[in-house]
Write a protein that binds this DNA or RNA. Sequence first.
DNA 1: CCCGCGTTGGGGCC
DNA 2: GGCCCCAACGCGGG
Length: 609
Amino acid sequence: MKSNSASKIVLYWHRTDLRLHDSPALTAALSLKPTTFIPIWTWDPHYVYRSRVGPNRWNFLLESQQALSNSYNNLNPNQKLWVIREAPQTVLPKLWERWGVTHLVFEKDTDSYARARDEEVIRLAEKAGVEVIVKMGRNLFDPDEIVSKNGGKPTMSISQVEKAAEKIGDGNPERPLNSPAANDIPDPLPLEKMDLKGIQQDKVDDQAKMDVNSGHRVGKDNQYIDIMGPNHDFGVPTLEEIGIDPSNIHTPHHGGESVALDLLNGYIKDEEYIGLFEKPNTSPAAFEPQSTTLLSPHLHFGTLSVRKFWWDVKDVMENRKKAKKPNASIPTNIPGQLLFRDMYFAAQAAIGEAFSRTYGNPIVRFIDWHLQTKTPEEIAHGKSEDKSYDVDSAEAEEWFLRWKEGRTGFPWIDALMRQLKTEGWIHHLGRHSVACFLTRGGCYVSWERGAEVFEEMLIDHETACNIGNWMWLSCTAFYAQFYRCYSPISFGKKWDPEGNLIRRYCPELAKFDKKYIYEPWRAPIADQRKWGCRVTGDKSETTTEDGQVYPKPMFDFDERRTASLDGMKEAYHVGLHGDDKQVKDGTWRKAFGIDDGGQRPQKKQKTKQ
DNA sequence: CCCGCGTTGGGGCC
DNA sequence: GGCCCCAACGCGGG
């Protein structure tokens, strides 16, 4: 829809890149020398209603969008981030028709929904004569290229990623690009031409009815009352507009490109921290300050370029090397951590849609977990109000819900889960603790249940990394040493013998002596009274005349560890994977001796056979 | 076929 | 703090 052949009206579609620095796509867009430049965000009902997003991540997203909008406005007072409330697949054709768009530019996204969405958009653009430019900028290396250099197979180890990266270049990503300067950002159309008055907004009622985030909405959902937003100004949505109560936001972690760059610059000045960083030596119990960089949410929203992170760190390490100072090495150092992120992205890129679940996924080992995700067939034959997972054990579902809410009765687990809920972030090793506990090292509940909770609560939730790490921890892919089990007592104690993390996030236990802080149920009743908290029942945050109450442990951990280990051994012996016929049609139960009534066989043997 | 290793275990011993 | 063993997976190299 070219309004005149000389003008270049460039629509820049922000998605995974809420930044101006080191953006290959933005650089490509501006190098077209546009006569008109319109940076937009499409407020997609798929993300709004179908992805699990809790209050802290909404907040982080809105802060990042507002920061980007302000940055555009600082460079060009006529500019901002133009937020349009409709699905991209339906609204983009309306925009390029109305605005006379000649070019559409965006950053490549290899997530499975994103791929399908982008293919659809590209098809529509070609039909309308709009030129599309797509550039990779979200990863160190293009995940598709890594896959092709890995023989077309998903990357299952860091060494495979390193080998593939060395075939692309010298193993390093490209150097970061500069941010645009003030006169690099052209004007949008005049305001009266930007106005979308009269454009019919596609309805989202059906999607809104299936809103997986309805539990977080306290107010009215005003997200789609106007295609330009409630003030008809394309403004960044507010929490109120989404129906989120701002007083529910208690996270200390905030979004925005300058927040990310300030954080990074602070670490870069500390060359010892950068050079000697080894992930397994950073404490999961540290808070204020945390022991790791907290830059993962910025990588997720693209407020920080991963290539800038890589090269700023590499340059520090190179200088240390020249000065004969030691550096940590891959995979535990910072570049190694970033390679893990690319490993999961490339694994996801190779597998596609099935990557995020067990059903149909060739890389995932099948375990006879409790609370399995139902197969598409089981869901089709079920009632509409049924859960998406099979409640094969009411007890296991209770364990799962207590885990999610942070009232398992194991303070280390509960502190971490409460930190996750209030702040949207916990340390990587904390994630290991709670993930092992839910799956192979305690509850024997499907990793998919845990992944859904993390998807909702983490501000840094990245599908590829979240799913990949849950597979890792549940020993269903990437990692197989299931006999290495995290103890909810010893592991925390090793890092935090005083129990400071527990005192912080389980304040009812704050006065307990460190002798009992990890096992408060062992404290004598007289001491429990003295320290103002009785360990009883299964509820937390309940007060009695005696003071506060903390739950008793929901099971005997040693018993559950043994039972889970036995289960893992048997499941490995059975040897099914997500794409096996028996997994797809439900007959896997036979291989595990589960009868038609869903009854599991009596396990007589102990761990030793 | 064996061996050593794999980002991040626990427990006992010295 | 370091070392070994526990019981034992999958992979890649020799």
